[in-house]
Design a binder for these strands. Structure first.
Lengths: 221, 221
DNA sequence: CCCTCCCAAAATATCGATATTTATTGACAT
DNA sequence: ATGTCAATAAATATCGATATTTTGGGAGGG
Protein backbone atom coordinates (compact mmCIF):
# COMPACT_ATOMS: atom_id res chain seq x y z
CA UNK A 1 0.00 0.00 0.00
CA UNK A 2 1.36 3.37 -0.99
CA UNK A 3 0.97 6.48 1.11
CA UNK A 4 0.43 9.65 -0.85
CA UNK A 5 1.37 12.54 1.32
CA UNK A 6 2.43 15.67 -0.57
CA UNK A 7 0.66 16.66 -3.74
CA UNK A 8 -0.09 13.31 -5.24
CA UNK A 9 3.20 12.45 -6.91
CA UNK A 10 6.37 11.29 -5.25
CA UNK A 11 8.81 13.38 -7.23
CA UNK A 12 11.99 11.56 -6.38
CA UNK A 13 13.58 9.59 -3.61
CA UNK A 14 13.19 10.79 -0.06
CA UNK A 15 16.91 11.50 0.04
CA UNK A 16 16.83 13.69 -3.02
CA UNK A 17 13.77 15.51 -1.80
CA UNK A 18 15.38 16.16 1.55
CA UNK A 19 18.50 17.30 -0.24
CA UNK A 20 16.65 19.86 -2.31
CA UNK A 21 14.60 21.17 0.56
CA UNK A 22 17.50 21.48 2.96
CA UNK A 23 19.64 23.10 0.35
CA UNK A 24 16.97 25.65 -0.34
CA UNK A 25 16.48 26.33 3.34
CA UNK A 26 20.17 26.95 3.80
CA UNK A 27 20.51 29.12 0.72
CA UNK A 28 17.59 31.33 1.69
CA UNK A 29 18.74 31.55 5.27
CA UNK A 30 15.72 29.79 6.68
CA UNK A 31 18.36 27.63 8.31
CA UNK A 32 20.84 30.29 9.43
CA UNK A 33 24.55 29.95 8.83
CA UNK A 34 26.35 28.15 11.59
CA UNK A 35 23.22 26.62 13.05
CA UNK A 36 23.33 23.16 14.46
CA UNK A 37 21.33 20.78 12.30
CA UNK A 38 19.79 18.12 14.48
CA UNK A 39 18.59 15.01 12.78
CA UNK A 40 15.48 14.68 14.86
CA UNK A 41 14.46 18.29 14.23
CA UNK A 42 14.94 17.98 10.46
CA UNK A 43 13.27 14.60 10.45
CA UNK A 44 10.19 16.37 11.70
CA UNK A 45 10.46 19.28 9.29
CA UNK A 46 10.71 17.06 6.24
CA UNK A 47 8.63 14.25 7.68
CA UNK A 48 10.92 11.51 6.59
CA UNK A 49 13.23 9.05 8.30
CA UNK A 50 16.63 9.69 9.76
CA UNK A 51 18.50 7.90 6.98
CA UNK A 52 17.44 10.22 4.15
CA UNK A 53 18.17 13.24 6.32
CA UNK A 54 21.62 11.99 7.15
CA UNK A 55 22.37 11.21 3.57
CA UNK A 56 21.09 14.54 2.34
CA UNK A 57 23.31 16.28 4.86
CA UNK A 58 26.26 14.23 3.68
CA UNK A 59 25.57 15.35 0.14
CA UNK A 60 25.30 18.97 1.17
CA UNK A 61 28.72 18.60 2.64
CA UNK A 62 30.02 18.26 -0.92
CA UNK A 63 28.47 21.56 -1.74
CA UNK A 64 30.16 23.17 1.23
CA UNK A 65 26.77 24.20 2.53
CA UNK A 66 26.95 21.89 5.51
CA UNK A 67 29.83 20.98 7.76
CA UNK A 68 30.22 17.67 9.41
CA UNK A 69 31.79 17.40 12.81
CA UNK A 70 32.82 13.85 13.42
CA UNK A 71 30.68 12.18 16.02
CA UNK A 72 29.01 15.50 16.72
CA UNK A 73 26.58 15.88 13.87
CA UNK A 74 26.13 18.54 11.27
CA UNK A 75 25.73 22.27 11.07
CA UNK A 76 25.00 24.81 8.36
CA UNK A 77 28.26 26.18 7.02
CA UNK A 78 29.21 29.42 8.72
CA UNK A 79 29.18 32.68 6.80
CA UNK A 80 31.68 35.51 7.05
CA UNK A 81 32.92 38.44 5.06
CA UNK A 82 36.19 36.63 4.50
CA UNK A 83 34.33 33.65 3.12
CA UNK A 84 32.28 35.90 0.91
CA UNK A 85 35.38 37.62 -0.42
CA UNK A 86 36.97 34.26 -1.12
CA UNK A 87 33.95 33.08 -3.04
CA UNK A 88 33.92 36.24 -5.11
CA UNK A 89 37.61 35.98 -5.94
CA UNK A 90 37.37 32.32 -6.89
CA UNK A 91 34.31 32.92 -9.02
CA UNK A 92 36.08 35.65 -10.91
CA UNK A 93 39.01 33.37 -11.68
CA UNK A 94 37.01 30.30 -12.57
CA UNK A 95 34.16 31.91 -14.46
CA UNK A 96 36.63 33.97 -16.43
CA UNK A 97 38.29 30.76 -17.51
CA UNK A 98 35.05 28.92 -18.20
CA UNK A 99 33.51 31.77 -20.14
CA UNK A 100 36.57 32.17 -22.34
CA UNK A 101 36.62 28.47 -23.07
CA UNK A 102 32.92 28.49 -23.80
CA UNK A 103 33.37 31.29 -26.30
CA UNK A 104 36.38 29.59 -27.83
CA UNK A 105 34.20 26.53 -28.46
CA UNK A 106 31.20 28.59 -29.52
CA UNK A 107 28.50 26.85 -31.55
CA UNK A 108 25.18 28.08 -32.90
CA UNK A 109 23.45 25.74 -30.52
CA UNK A 110 25.13 27.27 -27.53
CA UNK A 111 24.38 30.79 -28.68
CA UNK A 112 20.73 29.91 -29.04
CA UNK A 113 20.69 28.64 -25.49
CA UNK A 114 22.16 31.93 -24.35
CA UNK A 115 19.48 33.94 -26.08
CA UNK A 116 16.77 31.66 -24.74
CA UNK A 117 17.86 31.60 -21.14
CA UNK A 118 18.40 35.34 -21.22
CA UNK A 119 14.89 35.80 -22.51
CA UNK A 120 13.49 33.58 -19.78
CA UNK A 121 15.35 35.55 -17.19
CA UNK A 122 13.95 38.82 -18.45
CA UNK A 123 10.46 37.41 -18.42
CA UNK A 124 10.91 36.11 -14.87
CA UNK A 125 12.08 39.54 -13.80
CA UNK A 126 8.67 40.76 -12.73
CA UNK A 127 7.66 37.65 -10.83
CA UNK A 128 8.84 36.47 -7.44
CA UNK A 129 12.44 36.47 -6.33
CA UNK A 130 12.46 32.70 -6.29
CA UNK A 131 11.61 32.36 -9.93
CA UNK A 132 14.03 35.07 -10.97
CA UNK A 133 16.86 33.53 -8.97
CA UNK A 134 16.25 30.28 -10.78
CA UNK A 135 16.33 31.90 -14.20
CA UNK A 136 19.31 34.04 -13.29
CA UNK A 137 21.33 31.00 -12.37
CA UNK A 138 20.27 29.22 -15.51
CA UNK A 139 21.45 32.11 -17.65
CA UNK A 140 24.77 32.41 -15.92
CA UNK A 141 25.40 28.70 -16.10
CA UNK A 142 24.45 28.70 -19.78
CA UNK A 143 27.25 31.18 -20.37
CA UNK A 144 29.73 28.63 -19.04
CA UNK A 145 28.06 25.53 -20.38
CA UNK A 146 30.19 25.29 -23.48
CA UNK A 147 33.57 25.15 -21.78
CA UNK A 148 33.89 21.40 -22.32
CA UNK A 149 35.21 21.14 -18.81
CA UNK A 150 32.55 19.54 -16.64
CA UNK A 151 34.54 19.85 -13.44
CA UNK A 152 35.17 23.52 -13.99
CA UNK A 153 31.47 24.03 -14.56
CA UNK A 154 30.72 22.12 -11.42
CA UNK A 155 33.02 24.30 -9.38
CA UNK A 156 31.40 27.39 -10.83
CA UNK A 157 27.91 26.14 -10.06
CA UNK A 158 28.96 25.34 -6.54
CA UNK A 159 30.41 28.78 -6.00
CA UNK A 160 27.37 30.36 -7.57
CA UNK A 161 25.15 28.71 -4.99
CA UNK A 162 27.39 29.66 -2.14
CA UNK A 163 27.09 33.22 -3.30
CA UNK A 164 23.30 33.14 -3.38
CA UNK A 165 23.30 32.66 0.33
CA UNK A 166 25.02 35.98 0.78
CA UNK A 167 22.50 37.64 -1.46
CA UNK A 168 19.72 36.49 0.83
CA UNK A 169 21.73 37.53 3.86
CA UNK A 170 22.23 41.02 2.45
CA UNK A 171 18.59 41.27 1.40
CA UNK A 172 17.56 41.00 5.05
CA UNK A 173 19.51 44.10 5.90
CA UNK A 174 18.86 47.57 4.60
CA UNK A 175 19.17 49.27 1.26
CA UNK A 176 18.29 47.95 -2.09
CA UNK A 177 20.56 48.58 -5.01
CA UNK A 178 19.49 50.55 -8.03
CA UNK A 179 21.95 49.43 -10.62
CA UNK A 180 20.79 48.60 -14.09
CA UNK A 181 21.50 44.92 -13.70
CA UNK A 182 19.47 44.18 -16.76
CA UNK A 183 21.79 46.27 -18.93
CA UNK A 184 24.76 44.42 -17.51
CA UNK A 185 23.24 41.14 -18.56
CA UNK A 186 22.55 42.43 -22.07
CA UNK A 187 26.15 43.53 -22.32
CA UNK A 188 27.48 40.11 -21.29
CA UNK A 189 25.12 38.33 -23.64
CA UNK A 190 26.04 40.56 -26.53
CA UNK A 191 29.77 40.20 -26.02
CA UNK A 192 29.42 36.42 -25.78
CA UNK A 193 27.46 36.22 -28.98
CA UNK A 194 30.02 38.44 -30.71
CA UNK A 195 32.54 35.88 -29.45
CA UNK A 196 34.56 38.61 -27.86
CA UNK A 197 36.29 36.84 -24.98
CA UNK A 198 37.86 39.91 -23.47
CA UNK A 199 34.74 42.02 -23.49
CA UNK A 200 32.52 39.19 -22.28
CA UNK A 201 34.85 38.30 -19.46
CA UNK A 202 35.35 41.93 -18.48
CA UNK A 203 31.63 42.61 -18.30
CA UNK A 204 30.91 39.39 -16.45
CA UNK A 205 33.58 40.11 -13.86
CA UNK A 206 32.43 43.67 -13.52
CA UNK A 207 28.90 42.38 -12.99
CA UNK A 208 30.11 40.16 -10.17
CA UNK A 209 32.35 42.75 -8.61
CA UNK A 210 29.63 45.38 -8.56
CA UNK A 211 27.28 42.95 -6.88
CA UNK A 212 30.12 41.93 -4.60
CA UNK A 213 30.84 45.48 -3.50
CA UNK A 214 27.20 46.10 -2.87
CA UNK A 215 26.73 42.92 -0.88
CA UNK A 216 29.90 43.45 1.05
CA UNK A 217 28.54 46.73 2.34
CA UNK A 218 25.07 45.38 3.02
CA UNK A 219 26.35 42.43 5.03
CA UNK A 220 26.75 42.84 8.74
CA UNK A 221 28.24 39.56 9.79
CA UNK B 1 30.04 -4.35 26.40
CA UNK B 2 32.52 -3.21 23.79
CA UNK B 3 33.75 -5.38 20.96
CA UNK B 4 37.39 -4.93 20.09
CA UNK B 5 37.91 -6.10 16.58
CA UNK B 6 40.85 -4.54 14.76
CA UNK B 7 44.05 -3.75 16.58
CA UNK B 8 42.74 -2.75 19.96
CA UNK B 9 41.63 0.82 19.32
CA UNK B 10 38.59 1.95 17.42
CA UNK B 11 40.25 4.72 15.43
CA UNK B 12 37.18 6.63 14.38
CA UNK B 13 33.58 6.14 13.45
CA UNK B 14 32.62 3.29 11.17
CA UNK B 15 31.62 5.82 8.54
CA UNK B 16 34.96 7.56 8.58
CA UNK B 17 36.81 4.28 8.47
CA UNK B 18 34.75 3.11 5.52
CA UNK B 19 35.37 6.45 3.84
CA UNK B 20 39.13 6.18 4.15
CA UNK B 21 39.27 2.58 3.04
CA UNK B 22 37.00 3.03 0.05
CA UNK B 23 38.80 6.15 -0.98
CA UNK B 24 42.09 4.34 -0.89
CA UNK B 25 40.70 1.41 -2.84
CA UNK B 26 39.44 3.71 -5.55
CA UNK B 27 42.62 5.76 -5.74
CA UNK B 28 44.82 2.71 -6.07
CA UNK B 29 42.52 1.11 -8.57
CA UNK B 30 41.63 -1.80 -6.34
CA UNK B 31 38.11 -0.73 -7.14
CA UNK B 32 38.42 -0.02 -10.88
CA UNK B 33 37.05 3.12 -12.44
CA UNK B 34 33.47 2.81 -13.55
CA UNK B 35 32.77 -0.26 -11.47
CA UNK B 36 29.41 -0.69 -9.84
CA UNK B 37 29.70 -0.40 -6.09
CA UNK B 38 27.16 -2.65 -4.49
CA UNK B 39 26.35 -1.98 -0.89
CA UNK B 40 26.16 -5.61 0.08
CA UNK B 41 29.52 -6.38 -1.49
CA UNK B 42 31.24 -3.47 0.27
CA UNK B 43 29.47 -4.23 3.49
CA UNK B 44 31.26 -7.55 3.41
CA UNK B 45 34.60 -6.08 2.45
CA UNK B 46 34.63 -3.58 5.28
CA UNK B 47 32.60 -5.69 7.65
CA UNK B 48 30.31 -2.94 8.76
CA UNK B 49 26.65 -2.11 8.30
CA UNK B 50 24.94 -0.70 5.28
CA UNK B 51 24.48 2.77 6.76
CA UNK B 52 28.16 3.62 7.16
CA UNK B 53 28.88 2.30 3.67
CA UNK B 54 26.13 4.39 2.20
CA UNK B 55 27.28 7.47 3.99
CA UNK B 56 30.90 6.94 3.04
CA UNK B 57 29.87 6.64 -0.59
CA UNK B 58 27.87 9.83 -0.30
CA UNK B 59 30.93 11.59 1.03
CA UNK B 60 33.11 10.23 -1.76
CA UNK B 61 30.65 11.78 -4.14
CA UNK B 62 31.90 15.16 -2.92
CA UNK B 63 35.37 14.18 -3.91
CA UNK B 64 34.20 13.20 -7.37
CA UNK B 65 35.55 9.72 -6.78
CA UNK B 66 32.13 8.15 -6.75
CA UNK B 67 29.08 8.83 -8.83
CA UNK B 68 25.59 8.44 -7.59
CA UNK B 69 22.85 7.35 -9.91
CA UNK B 70 19.52 8.15 -8.39
CA UNK B 71 17.70 5.05 -7.26
CA UNK B 72 20.36 2.95 -8.93
CA UNK B 73 23.20 3.02 -6.47
CA UNK B 74 26.79 4.09 -6.77
CA UNK B 75 29.76 3.46 -8.99
CA UNK B 76 33.41 4.43 -8.99
CA UNK B 77 33.86 7.53 -11.11
CA UNK B 78 34.87 6.65 -14.65
CA UNK B 79 38.32 7.53 -15.93
CA UNK B 80 39.24 8.80 -19.35
CA UNK B 81 42.01 10.66 -21.09
CA UNK B 82 39.72 13.65 -21.43
CA UNK B 83 39.06 13.63 -17.71
CA UNK B 84 42.76 13.35 -17.03
CA UNK B 85 43.51 16.28 -19.29
CA UNK B 86 40.85 18.31 -17.58
CA UNK B 87 42.26 17.58 -14.17
CA UNK B 88 45.73 18.55 -15.31
CA UNK B 89 44.55 21.82 -16.80
CA UNK B 90 42.52 22.76 -13.74
CA UNK B 91 45.34 21.89 -11.41
CA UNK B 92 47.69 24.11 -13.35
CA UNK B 93 45.32 27.04 -13.08
CA UNK B 94 44.37 26.58 -9.46
CA UNK B 95 47.72 25.58 -8.05
CA UNK B 96 49.37 28.45 -9.88
CA UNK B 97 46.99 30.78 -8.13
CA UNK B 98 47.31 29.14 -4.74
CA UNK B 99 51.08 28.98 -4.87
CA UNK B 100 51.39 32.62 -5.81
CA UNK B 101 49.09 33.63 -2.99
CA UNK B 102 50.98 31.43 -0.57
CA UNK B 103 54.23 33.08 -1.51
CA UNK B 104 52.68 36.53 -1.32
CA UNK B 105 51.68 35.75 2.26
CA UNK B 106 54.94 34.03 3.08
CA UNK B 107 55.89 33.67 6.74
CA UNK B 108 58.86 32.00 8.42
CA UNK B 109 56.51 29.41 9.83
CA UNK B 110 55.26 28.44 6.42
CA UNK B 111 58.77 28.23 5.01
CA UNK B 112 59.79 25.94 7.83
CA UNK B 113 56.88 23.67 7.02
CA UNK B 114 58.05 23.54 3.43
CA UNK B 115 61.53 22.51 4.40
CA UNK B 116 60.22 19.92 6.82
CA UNK B 117 57.71 18.29 4.53
CA UNK B 118 60.26 18.27 1.73
CA UNK B 119 62.71 16.53 4.00
CA UNK B 120 60.12 13.94 4.99
CA UNK B 121 59.35 13.30 1.37
CA UNK B 122 62.99 12.73 0.55
CA UNK B 123 63.34 10.35 3.43
CA UNK B 124 60.23 8.44 2.38
CA UNK B 125 61.64 8.13 -1.11
CA UNK B 126 63.32 4.79 -0.54
CA UNK B 127 60.37 3.19 1.22
CA UNK B 128 57.14 1.88 -0.25
CA UNK B 129 55.08 3.75 -2.81
CA UNK B 130 52.31 4.20 -0.30
CA UNK B 131 54.44 6.09 2.15
CA UNK B 132 56.04 8.21 -0.53
CA UNK B 133 52.69 9.10 -2.04
CA UNK B 134 51.57 10.30 1.35
CA UNK B 135 54.65 12.45 1.86
CA UNK B 136 54.50 13.74 -1.69
CA UNK B 137 50.98 14.97 -1.22
CA UNK B 138 51.86 16.54 2.10
CA UNK B 139 54.71 18.48 0.50
CA UNK B 140 52.63 19.70 -2.40
CA UNK B 141 49.78 20.75 -0.15
CA UNK B 142 52.23 22.53 2.13
CA UNK B 143 53.26 24.65 -0.83
CA UNK B 144 49.68 25.87 -1.14
CA UNK B 145 48.83 25.95 2.54
CA UNK B 146 49.57 29.63 2.97
CA UNK B 147 47.17 30.94 0.36
CA UNK B 148 44.62 32.03 2.96
CA UNK B 149 41.93 30.64 0.71
CA UNK B 150 40.60 27.44 2.26
CA UNK B 151 38.26 26.68 -0.59
CA UNK B 152 40.98 27.05 -3.16
CA UNK B 153 43.13 24.69 -1.16
CA UNK B 154 40.28 22.27 -0.94
CA UNK B 155 39.81 22.29 -4.69
CA UNK B 156 43.51 21.69 -5.17
CA UNK B 157 43.57 18.81 -2.74
CA UNK B 158 40.58 17.29 -4.46
CA UNK B 159 42.21 17.55 -7.86
CA UNK B 160 45.45 16.19 -6.47
CA UNK B 161 43.68 13.06 -5.34
CA UNK B 162 41.87 12.63 -8.59
CA UNK B 163 45.23 12.75 -10.30
CA UNK B 164 46.73 10.07 -8.08
CA UNK B 165 44.29 7.62 -9.53
CA UNK B 166 45.76 8.13 -12.96
CA UNK B 167 49.24 7.61 -11.60
CA UNK B 168 48.21 4.19 -10.36
CA UNK B 169 46.46 3.48 -13.63
CA UNK B 170 49.59 4.34 -15.59
CA UNK B 171 51.80 2.38 -13.25
CA UNK B 172 49.98 -0.78 -14.21
CA UNK B 173 50.97 -0.36 -17.81
CA UNK B 174 54.48 -0.39 -19.16
CA UNK B 175 57.45 1.88 -18.94
CA UNK B 176 58.80 3.68 -15.96
CA UNK B 177 59.95 7.24 -16.26
CA UNK B 178 63.51 8.25 -15.57
CA UNK B 179 63.18 11.94 -14.86
CA UNK B 180 64.97 13.52 -11.97
CA UNK B 181 61.79 14.23 -10.08
CA UNK B 182 63.76 14.91 -6.97
CA UNK B 183 65.59 17.80 -8.64
CA UNK B 184 62.27 19.25 -9.75
CA UNK B 185 61.06 19.26 -6.17
CA UNK B 186 64.25 20.96 -4.98
CA UNK B 187 63.77 23.62 -7.61
CA UNK B 188 60.18 24.31 -6.55
CA UNK B 189 61.13 24.41 -2.89
CA UNK B 190 64.01 26.74 -3.55
CA UNK B 191 61.98 29.15 -5.63
CA UNK B 192 59.24 29.22 -3.01
CA UNK B 193 61.68 29.98 -0.23
CA UNK B 194 63.23 32.72 -2.34
CA UNK B 195 59.68 34.02 -2.63
CA UNK B 196 59.98 34.08 -6.38
CA UNK B 197 56.41 33.61 -7.54
CA UNK B 198 57.16 33.34 -11.22
CA UNK B 199 59.94 30.84 -10.87
CA UNK B 200 58.08 28.77 -8.29
CA UNK B 201 54.92 28.65 -10.35
CA UNK B 202 56.82 27.90 -13.55
CA UNK B 203 58.69 25.00 -11.99
CA UNK B 204 55.57 23.64 -10.31
CA UNK B 205 53.60 23.72 -13.52
CA UNK B 206 56.46 22.22 -15.47
CA UNK B 207 56.62 19.45 -12.87
CA UNK B 208 52.94 18.71 -13.40
CA UNK B 209 53.07 18.95 -17.15
CA UNK B 210 56.02 16.61 -17.44
CA UNK B 211 54.24 14.08 -15.28
CA UNK B 212 51.10 14.72 -17.27
CA UNK B 213 52.75 14.06 -20.60
CA UNK B 214 54.30 10.91 -19.29
CA UNK B 215 51.07 9.63 -17.81
CA UNK B 216 49.09 10.56 -20.86
CA UNK B 217 51.30 8.29 -22.95
CA UNK B 218 51.31 5.50 -20.40
CA UNK B 219 47.53 5.42 -20.10
CA UNK B 220 45.60 3.16 -22.36
CA UNK B 221 42.03 3.92 -21.49
C1' DC C 1 13.03 -14.47 -35.44
C1' DC C 2 12.21 -10.43 -32.79
C1' DC C 3 9.73 -7.52 -29.82
C1' DT C 4 6.84 -6.63 -25.77
C1' DC C 5 5.07 -7.56 -21.46
C1' DC C 6 5.15 -9.69 -17.16
C1' DC C 7 7.16 -12.14 -13.30
C1' DA C 8 10.93 -13.49 -10.27
C1' DA C 9 15.47 -12.13 -8.31
C1' DA C 10 18.59 -8.72 -6.92
C1' DA C 11 19.72 -4.41 -5.29
C1' DT C 12 18.59 -0.03 -3.39
C1' DA C 13 16.24 2.99 -0.23
C1' DT C 14 13.98 3.60 3.99
C1' DC C 15 12.27 2.68 8.54
C1' DG C 16 12.30 1.81 13.59
C1' DA C 17 14.96 0.36 17.32
C1' DT C 18 19.33 0.13 19.83
C1' DA C 19 24.03 1.11 21.12
C1' DT C 20 27.51 4.89 21.65
C1' DT C 21 28.88 9.08 22.24
C1' DT C 22 28.54 13.84 23.71
C1' DA C 23 26.35 17.49 26.45
C1' DT C 24 24.15 18.96 30.82
C1' DT C 25 23.02 19.19 35.40
C1' DG C 26 23.63 19.21 40.22
C1' DA C 27 25.93 17.52 44.34
C1' DC C 28 30.06 17.65 46.84
C1' DA C 29 34.54 18.97 48.25
C1' DT C 30 37.67 22.75 48.32
C1' DA D 1 31.65 30.95 45.41
C1' DT D 2 34.08 27.64 42.37
C1' DG D 3 35.82 23.74 40.15
C1' DT D 4 35.44 18.70 39.58
C1' DC D 5 33.08 14.52 38.93
C1' DA D 6 29.38 11.43 38.45
C1' DA D 7 24.75 10.58 36.92
C1' DT D 8 21.33 11.79 33.67
C1' DA D 9 19.56 13.50 29.47
C1' DA D 10 20.04 14.34 24.63
C1' DA D 11 21.82 13.47 20.27
C1' DT D 12 24.43 10.83 17.04
C1' DA D 13 25.80 6.62 14.81
C1' DT D 14 24.78 2.08 13.64
C1' DC D 15 22.22 -2.13 13.02
C1' DG D 16 18.75 -5.42 11.18
C1' DA D 17 14.54 -5.82 8.88
C1' DT D 18 11.24 -4.29 5.40
C1' DA D 19 9.41 -1.83 1.46
C1' DT D 20 10.42 -0.14 -3.18
C1' DT D 21 12.66 -0.05 -7.29
C1' DT D 22 15.40 -1.82 -10.93
C1' DT D 23 17.17 -5.69 -13.53
C1' DG D 24 17.14 -9.91 -16.10
C1' DG D 25 14.95 -13.68 -18.21
C1' DG D 26 11.50 -16.02 -20.24
C1' DA D 27 6.58 -16.84 -22.30
C1' DG D 28 3.51 -15.40 -25.54
C1' DG D 29 2.17 -12.67 -29.47
C1' DG D 30 3.44 -10.31 -33.75
Amino acid sequence: MTMIDETQVKETSATHGAYLTLRDMILTGELPAGQKLKIEQLRGLLNTGASPVREALSLLTSDMLVERIDQRGFRAAPASKANFAEILALRCTLEDLALRQSIANATPDWEEQLVLTHHHMKRASGQGTKLFEEAHKTFHMALLANSESPMLERFCAQLYDLNIRYRYLAAKSATYQKRDVSAEHEEILDAAIQRDQDRASASLLSHYRLTGDYLSRALDI
